[in-house]
Amino acid sequence: MLELKSITKKFANKVVLNSVNLRLQRSQILFVLGRSGVGKSVLLKTIVGLIPQDRGEVWINGEKTDPLNEEKMVTVRQKCGLVFQMPALLDSLTLQENLEFGLEGNQKSGLRKYLDWVQLSEGVLSRYPSEVSFGTQKKVSVVRTLLREPQFILFDEPTTGLDPVSREVTNQMIRNVVKESETGCVVVSHDIQSAIELANSIMLLDEGRVVFEGTPEAFRNSDQGLIRSFCKGMVVLDA
């Protein structure tokens, strides 16, 4: 289980995360929604210790993380992967080399399976990141994390900037990941549609605070002003 207790983070004078609590079991999908710049990405980076929190604790499988201890965080990151919004692949390596970077031999065996999940053909892997589309780069960065077989995966805006077709592939991939590997997923996103379709629970952040936490149905039916504004962003096809 992944657990956050009262995570608080301040940048200059702005409180970006204010006593955020979170709980995620394996095989569950949690969507974290909120306006831009509200601290959603910071939350993910805090979980893996890239940005140490000012106050509060992160617990993974019953162990508290120590973000100031880089060596210990290495083990945490092997259990909990983070997929960035921008693919962040190494430009000087081919896609294949990016995937295999730092991997032991026996971990490469899952490659075929994961490529299928993201609908990527092996032939593309000999190319360099600059030669492939944004969507392809994003897929490779996901497979890169999947190969490490973490217990939890954090996705930072996985469908932003993607075509509707690619969005569906991404959502399908997340479903597979959760079902086949029992991975717990935290997805930070603007994509209300995907949130409603995929999430077991939805969390809404506003001004650093958790203002909603519950099921997608509860989210849809909520009459909170902010939630209604968010839901306006959903496409109504039958009107």
Binding site: E70, A88, L89, G102
Partner: peptide, 25 residues
């Protein structure tokens, strides 16, 4: 320039998130 670009585009962070130490690799 190469390392600076890697730093600002989160490439080094991405490597950290794989459980590797960018300083070493």
């Amino acid at each position: 320039a190469e390392l600076g670009t890697m730093a600002i585009t989160d490439q080094l962070n991405a490597i950290r998130c794989l459980g590797l130490n960018p300083l070493a690799v």
